[in-house]
């Protein structure tokens, strides 16, 4: 049995805060949970907080990119917040630039970014 990362909801935004060193299976579970809950809770945005994460390897990096793509298909925007400098440098060296993923320095800025982009699409 692998553990599951809790998904919180604030208004129409889903919030995931990763606090522990994730097993690959837990990462896969998170991806499924998010896809399901974006639909079931009609979320418009997803914030993944990785402030506490010390290592992002290609497996976790791919999960972040996949969640971003899935959520876009489901009409929600994903923002990854709080990536540490050492993690960012390592990802670049690894060859992962997380093309389609939006990022913000911290949770507050991430939420602000989502609010701006959601209200923009609503006006459209």
């Amino acid at each position: 049995m692998s553990e599951r990362v809790p998904v919180l909801r604030i208004g129409d935004i889903l919030l995931v805060s990763i606090q522990v060193d994730l097993e690959d299976q837990t990462v896969m579970n998170l991806q499924e949970d998010l896809a399901e809950q974006i639909v079931s809770r009609s979320a418009r945005g997803v914030v993944i907080d990785i402030t506490a994460v010390e290592i992002v390897d290609s497996f976790v990096g791919r999960m972040l990119a996949t969640i971003a793509s899935i959520s876009r298909l489901l009409d929600a925007e994903t923002v990854v917040v709080g990536m540490r400098p050492a993690v960012a440098i390592t990802l670049v060296e690894l060859g992962l630039s997380l093309g389609g993923v939006r990022t913000a320095l911290d949770l507050e800025k991430g939420l602000a970014l989502l609010r701006r982009s959601v209200s923009r699409t609503d006006r459209r």
């Binding site: 990536m83 960012a88 060296e93 630039s97 320095l105 991430g110």
Partner: peptide, 12 residues
């Protein structure tokens, strides 16, 4: 270049 990409990953 790498720094600029890394900064983007961090949201800057």
């Amino acid at each position: 270049l790498k720094t600029i990409v890394a900064a983007r990953l961090m949201g800057a």
